[in-house]
Amino acid sequence: TSGVYLSNYTDLLMNEPVYENLTALGLSGVAFDGVWAIAVALDIASKKILLRNETGCENVPGDLVPLEQFNYTNMKLGCILRQSFSEVNFLGVTGQIRFNRFGSRNDNVILYQQYRVINGILTKVSIGAVTVELHRNTFVFETGESDSTLWNSGEPPYDGFPVANIDKNNVVLVVIYDVAATGGLVFACVCFTFNFVFRRRKIVKLTSCNLNNIIILGSALLYT
């Protein structure tokens, strides 16, 4: 492995000169759109393969096989994937997502937007932009925008399952469980008494008196 972990990946990336002035928010937007771009391109490629559409790749050596059988020696499948990425075109959170024949985004200004509820309506708001230059990328907030305007607490919210602590049990459930447990203990005592009193009877001897006592004891422990 590379030895780079999530805890220090962002810090290492921020120290690169080409990412000067790029915030962690900018990284999340690019990652989000990048994942969607890959998903859309793979969907386009799978449809091409399903329809046996080799347009533009007819003379490329290799076999048109399912994506699950991809390998780096199959040049035809690689050609299909490159063409699929060139057909990607959708509006992402960082602007229009489309690529030229060299695999680079056509836009040199990448927009960053956030969904906000304004007057009860979900609205997409521009919060900043990244200008892609030759040797570095520069992120600039829109006027009036900052880290404090993006999130209520000034930082992204916790992305996970909420943790709810139960301070006390429901009274009704406690009563039901207690009544059921008491009934079980009473029934266990009745069975033990029956097993002891009639231990010499044939009906008890056939079922092993000692084994019955062990089962009754285990049941009583469960009810307590």
Results as ranks from 00 to 15, higher is better:
Val4Trp: 11
Thr10His: 15
Asp11Lys: 13
Leu12Phe: 10
Asn15Met: 13
Tyr19Thr: 15
Asn21Ala: 06
Leu25Pro: 15
Gly26Pro: 04
Ser28Met: 11
Ala31Val: 11
Phe32Glu: 14
Phe32Arg: 13
Asp33Ser: 12
Asp33His: 13
Asp33Arg: 13
Asp33Pro: 11
Ala37Ser: 08
Val40Thr: 02
Leu42Arg: 08
Leu42Ile: 15
Ile44Asn: 11
Ala45His: 02
Lys47Met: 11
Leu51Pro: 08
Thr55Leu: 06
Gly56Thr: 08
Cys57Ala: 11
Asn59Phe: 03
Asn59Asp: 11
Val60Thr: 05
Val60Ile: 13
Pro61Ile: 05
Pro61Asp: 14
Gly62Lys: 04
Leu64Arg: 00
Leu64Ile: 06
Val65Asp: 03
Phe70His: 15
Phe70Ala: 10
Phe70Trp: 12
Tyr72Asp: 06
Asn74Thr: 09
Ile80Ser: 03
Val88Gly: 04
Asn89Cys: 07
Phe90Lys: 15
Phe90Ser: 07
Leu91Asn: 04
Thr94Val: 07
Gly95Leu: 05
Gly95Asn: 06
Ile97Glu: 04
Arg101Ala: 05
Phe102Thr: 08
Gly103Arg: 04
Asn106Arg: 15
Leu111Pro: 02
Ile118Gly: 14
Asn119Glu: 13
Gly120Asp: 11
Gly120Arg: 15
Thr123Arg: 15
Thr123Pro: 05
Lys124Asn: 13
Val125Ala: 02
Val125Gly: 03
Ser126Gln: 07
Thr131Tyr: 01
Thr131Ala: 12
Glu133His: 10
Leu134Val: 08
Val140Lys: 15
Val140Ile: 07
Glu142Phe: 01
Glu142Trp: 04
Glu145Ser: 01
Ser148Val: 05
Leu150Tyr: 03
Trp151Phe: 09
Gly154Cys: 04
Tyr158Trp: 06
Asp159Phe: 00
Phe161Met: 06
Pro162His: 07
Val163Thr: 06
Ala164Tyr: 10
Asn165Ile: 10
Ile166Trp: 10
Asp167Tyr: 11
Lys168Ile: 00
Asn170Ser: 04
Val172Tyr: 14
Val175Gln: 13
Val175Arg: 15
Tyr177Gln: 12
Val179Pro: 00
Ala180Gly: 05
Thr182Met: 00
Thr182Tyr: 01
Gly184Asn: 05
Leu185Thr: 04
Val186Asn: 13
Ala188Gly: 05
Cys191Phe: 06
Cys191Asn: 02
Cys191Pro: 01
Cys191Tyr: 05
Thr193Lys: 14
Phe194Leu: 06
Phe194Ser: 03
Arg201Ala: 06
Arg201Tyr: 14
Lys202Glu: 09
Lys205Met: 14
Lys205Phe: 10
Leu206Glu: 13
Leu206Gln: 10
Leu211Ile: 09
Ile214Tyr: 14
Ile214Ala: 09
Gly218Thr: 12
Ser219Leu: 06
Ser219Ala: 06
Ala220Pro: 01
Leu222Val: 15
Tyr223Arg: 03
Tyr223Pro: 05
Tyr223Lys: 07
Tyr223Cys: 09
Thr224His: 09
Thr224Met: 03
